[in-house]
Amino acid sequence: MWHKPRLMTAVSDLLLLAGGVALLVAAVIWGAPRLRLFPLNEVLVTHELREVRHSDVQQVLSALLHGNFFTVSPEAIRLSLEQLPWVRRAEVWRKWPARIEVRIEEQQAAAHWGDGQGELVNTFGEVFSAPLTREQPLPRLSGPTGSAGEVLRRYAEFAQLLKPVGVLPAHVALSPRLAWLLKMENGMLVELGREQAKAPIRVRLQRFVEYYPSLSETRHGRPIAVDMRYPNGFALRFPASAVQEVKGKK
């Protein structure tokens, strides 16, 4: 090739042209903000928002939508949006030539979580913090850290088993020792204890459902608690006043 001047000249011209194009592109990208090229003209939120406040979204966008189409950071916007209450996930992308599109997946509350400090459980069994924007008849779940998904799954199972008696759990609690306790809508406590191979939780709750209609027919009235931790039976606890009244009549 060194003995072919014309070829060397052509290669040199090609390299110069490629270099010039690269410099031009770099100059356009670097200089675009200063030359006010490629301005953003529109921001589109693609889904209707029910829980997330529009004012919060606008505040995030107004703080981060500086520069032009190329310099705005979709990732920074996404991370900021996901810090808002009721936002589970956000997606942000550029839409040529002058638009930013935002998709927000809102949290869907399935239950209250814990001791009433504003924590909720979503339908995926994830704990999040957000104020309720309207009245919702949500059950309360509680358990050790990391157990929200399992407690939510068990709540759905318990609610299905209890349908025949028409009373749902208002509170499902899992203790640190992995024992289950239900508080029914009528205030009755149902102690189910720990999962056992010989007497599974499901079987014990089915036994409770079977005998539930007769529980209000006891001579002491309706019990305040039912202990279902026994393999083949259960124990009842009554208000102390009811027991004393019965004792006085003997």
Rank of each mutant, 00 (worst) to 15 (best):
E75F: 13
I77C: 09
R78G: 11
S80Q: 15
V87W: 11
R88M: 14
E91R: 09
R94M: 10
R94A: 08
K95W: 15
R99D: 14
E101Q: 13
V102T: 10
E105M: 13
E105W: 15
Q108E: 15
A109C: 13
A109Y: 08
A110E: 01
A111P: 02
D115Y: 07
G116N: 04
E119T: 06
L120H: 02
L120I: 09
N122F: 10
T123I: 15
G125R: 04
E126D: 04
V127D: 07
V127L: 02
V127P: 05
S129N: 07
A130Q: 07
P131T: 02
L132D: 03
R134T: 11
E135I: 10
E135A: 08
L138P: 05
P139Q: 02
L141G: 05
P144R: 00
T145A: 12
T145S: 10
G146H: 03
S147W: 00
S147H: 03
G149Q: 13
E150F: 11
V151M: 10
R154N: 09
Y155P: 02
A156E: 15
E157I: 02
F158N: 03
F158P: 01
Q160S: 13
V165N: 00
V167G: 04
V167F: 04
P169N: 08
A170K: 09
V172I: 00
V172P: 02
A173C: 03
S175D: 13
R177W: 08
R177T: 10
L178I: 06
W180E: 11
L181K: 05
L182I: 01
K183V: 15
K183T: 14
M184T: 01
N186C: 03
G187V: 02
E191G: 05
L192P: 13
G193E: 04
Q196T: 10
Q196G: 08
A197R: 08
K198F: 10
K198E: 15
P200Q: 07
I201E: 09
I201T: 12
V203Q: 14
R204P: 07
E210D: 11
Y212G: 06
Y212M: 12
Y212R: 05
P213R: 04
